[in-house]
């Protein structure tokens, strides 16, 4: 059983909602990432979503774009990100790690080489923003061989027919993008999210994570009522940007924000 499925099964038996913080690997400097990953787990993260920096992050708002630029200033590559996951795994064998990124760095590394290496160091899932299932067959077969869960997105514009097709290709959990837009810009409205999640539940047994527009404890709490996982990205990344010159502040402020979210999600 994959670490992601195991984690969702455990949480389900405890009637808990998963909390998934997102950070961009290498932001603001590569040497902080692994320390922060451990600190986030300590503060209550159930899964970690680690962004692979890309020069042209088409689906990101200004906050995560800037994080990519900070990480790329230090040359953080896909290889470096996998090294960070390997380092993290040395002292945490249970927390699932999901990589989020864009296809081109994986294309350049090669699907087979990427999947074999990522699988061998204990990476658990992959979300490739700009690769819908229609274009994914080559990569999916390599991920399957390496026991890596492909996580796909669903959006407000996704039709019922596509939900069925996408969830058949997805493992671990499916990620619902709560609004039309880029990361970190708008606040979500819970009513339409609730409605869409009901629709998705009719069509799949996979756990449903919700991301985009979750900015604070209040929005995290309302999403936790309807979803199986709450993903928080830009709110965390903007806190990191605020303290980008101060490693200690990041390692205390970011986990403390996550604890606040944890309490809200667990209510």
């Amino acid at each position: 059983m994959s670490r992601i499925k195991q984690r969702f099964d455990d949480l389900k038996s405890k009637h808990k909602t998963a909390l998934i913080p997102f950070i961009t690997a290498g932001d603001p400097r590569p040497d902080i990432t692994v320390k922060l990953m451990h600190a986030l787990v300590e503060a209550g993260a159930d899964l970690l979503e680690l962004g692979v920096p890309f020069s042209d992050p088409m689906a990101e708002g200004p906050t995560i774009q800037a994080a990519c630029e900070r990480a790329l200033e230090h040359g953080t590559s896909l290889t470096d990100v996998l090294d960070m996951v390997e380092e993290f795994r040395k002292s945490d064998s249970t927390t699932p790690v999901l990589l989020m990124g864009y296809l081109n760095p994986i294309e350049v590394m090669g699907y087979k080489k990427f999947a074999q290496h990522a699988g061998s160091i204990g990476m658990d899932g992959l979300l490739t923003v700009d690769m819908p299932p229609e274009e994914a067959s080559g990569l999916l077969s390599e991920l399957a061989l390496a026991n890596i869960d492909p996580v796909f997105l669903l959006a407000p514009t996704t039709t019922q027919q596509r939900i069925e097709m996408i969830t058949q290709q997805t493992k671990g959990f499916v990620y619902y993008v709560s609004l039309k837009g880029v990361t970190g810009v708008k606040s979500l409205e819970i009513k339409p999210v609730e409605k869409k999640i009901k629709e998705i539940r009719q069509l799949t047994d996979l756990p449903i994570g919700v991301g985009f527009g979750i900015k604070d404890a209040e929005s995290a709490a309302s999403v936790a009522q309807v979803a199986d996982a709450v993903v928080v990205g830009s709110a965390i990344v903007s806190l990191m940007a605020k303290h980008k010159e101060d490693e200690q502040a990041i390692l205390t402020q970011v986990p403390s924000f996550l604890q606040e979210l944890r309490r809200a999600v667990d209510i």
């Binding site: 088409m58 689906a59 296809l103 923003v129 700009d130 690769m131 819908p132 229609e134 274009e135 796909f152 997105l153 669903l154 959006a155 407000p156 514009t157 996704t158 039709t159 596509r162 996408i166 993008v177 039309k180």
Partner: peptide
């Protein structure tokens, strides 16, 4: 049908844009 010219082309976008 899916916009491919040999291995090139296609539709590599975030899910929100697939239906539009």
């Amino acid at each position: 049908e899916n916009g491919h010219f040999g291995i090139y082309g296609g539709r590599f976008v975030a899910e929100t844009l697939m239906e539009p």
